[in-house]
Design a protein around this nucleic acid. Sequence first.
DNA 1: ATGGTTGATGGTCAA
Length: 263
Amino acid sequence: MRLVTWNINSVRLRFDLLRRVVEELAPDVVCLQETKVTDDLFPADACRELGFPHLAFHGMKGYNGVAILSKRPLAAIHKPLRCDKADCRHLIADIGGVELHCLYIPAGGDIPDPAANAKFAHKLDFVRELTAWYGTAYSPDKRLILAGDFNIAPLETDVWSHKQLLSVVSHTPIEVELLGKLQDSVPFVDAMRHFIPPEERLYTWWSYRSPDWTRNDRGRRLDHVWVTPALKESLRGVQVLRDARAWTQPSDHVPVLVEIAES
DNA sequence: ATGGTTGATGGTCAA
């Protein structure tokens, strides 16, 4: 199974780029974040025409929104609420005996202080809630894939400058610590780092707030695919479609492909 | 310490 996760930053604006991602990566299933569209306006017919007859989407007006596009049937679709908010950030579907979770963790605003910044507090609470939930509801033998925009870059090589980003939301010690606890909760295997050694720099996002994203390569690895130990030996490869950041009117995130063998 | 850009929206807010 070829699985792609991508923060598309508006599925309606960038549908042609989604088509290009599908052409280049030939995914069987696509997890999207930041679809930014209500369910009644989701481009379902266009997704079917793209080769994905099985869809699950969970959106709202203006921001957030997650979706799963699949060539194979989806079952047991769930849209759990998180932190008692109406946000659309978590979507679950069973695909061929594997439980697939599409996840969009809050970005957390700009100030890395939960007392001064409610959005940062929400982000930390969101990760804590997930940690408690996964820890009680799942075990290592469960076949589970967790894919999405986690908005946290945990390793020093997941950011262009560990030192300079220690106080920047996405790479602060508290976020990294909490993401580590989330990963330990089942535990999860980091599929990208399963193939790419931690010494190697690896990014999936480059800010819009830079006149030239290629200058000094100031990226961060905010997007992740995790699997439970039950699927670890089935991992076959990973690809980051870095070229997508250079496309016309791109998302600030690029697609990540993970290939998982069928059992 | 600050500003930089983008998208949905029609004021700003979120990222």
